[in-house]
Design a protein around this nucleic acid. Sequence first.
DNA 1: TTCTAAAATGAATAAAAATTCATTTATAAT
DNA 2: ATTATAAATGAATTTTTATTCATTTTAGAA
Lengths: 193, 193
Amino acid sequence: MRIRDEDKIKRIYKAAICLISEVGIAGLTMAKLAKEAKLATGTVYIYFKSKEVLINKLFTKLQQEAAERFMQGMEKQSNFKQQLCRVFLNYLNHRIKYHDESVFLEQYYRSPYITKDQLQLTQALKQPVLDLFHQGQDNDELRCDMDVHMMFLMFLGFIRELAGEHVLGFYVLDEKKKLEAFERSWELIEKGG
Amino acid sequence: MRIRDEDKIKRIYKAAICLISEVGIAGLTMAKLAKEAKLATGTVYIYFKSKEVLINKLFTKLQQEAAERFMQGMEKQSNFKQQLCRVFLNYLNHRIKYHDESVFLEQYYRSPYITKDQLQLTQALKQPVLDLFHQGQDNDELRCDMDVHMMFLMFLGFIRELAGEHVLGFYVLDEKKKLEAFERSWELIEKGG
DNA sequence: TTCTAAAATGAATAAAAATTCATTTATAAT
DNA sequence: ATTATAAATGAATTTTTATTCATTTTAGAA
């Protein structure tokens, strides 16, 4: 007998991300998806029971992968500023390298596919980063005349905006610019300010 | 003879924005739209030739309205900081009050409906705000060791993030918080900083 | 008040998209 | 090498959704 080809699942996911970043979830059809993945439409249904299941699984997979990337390598850093810098760069690089995925995730939040549980999970995945900020303030590393949560939002918002403009080609980032961007964020929140 | 009812156009737009914010452009159907607007499906086609035309017109309308709101009341302000504060609050309040519209606009950018021209226009609408920043730097109001464009992106990114979390109920803003948020943004970019 | 032309309706139809399935193909086991 | 079994295929079918249209209703003109 013939065995299932795990590579096909990857091809299906990849094709879905690619097409959705062009035409949105609105524009994705199973026929286009199969063509992009170089498969027959029926084959897609061997791996995924329905379009809904496919979209759901893709969301969960991407969300988890993203969360892992954010905190990667943070424990290796020697001090708080370096840890924060690691997270800053992780998130920025993630939003650039996996931009298509970010587009999908954001569309999914406002689609007929999302469930309550998934929406909760989304918020939970941000928690480790917010915790890092709280920890920073507890250890007297951050200015105390500013709401930690507000710092956190400035931090994230800036990164998203930077990545978005970079991908569109309107504000191109190199490694030096990225570090400069982090320094500006740091100035804003550091104790000595 | 009977005359066209302009109010119905408003109802159609309103219903579209409302439904899209719940289920995305992906989930919008003409049947649901008509029901939400309390009209027969056929009636929608009297006012809009097709679903595509409807979505297109809605986009153009909302984009223009949004652009007008951003700069509103700015000329009345006496100094640069006050002008910038006006724009900050305009944009923040816009993203909160018209959150559903913002969701639609962002989905539209990545949908099968958008055209090249429309994408260009989007960028053009941001220009006046960027110009204000350039003007500020020319007049020596802003620190000169930081890229104006980067300041601009921090400014916008923070606002978007704030508004997004406020709407989800994760970071609630009152008028005091809004002004505090502006002060933090200002600290970051002002000359003396 | 009557007439008329356009709006409004929603069931009927057409078009598009999701899903199935009879058939073919490939490969693991013997 | 043969066989058995599940994968792969894509045309056929079903389902969903957009659009049309015959009919009814409405409001302005005569």
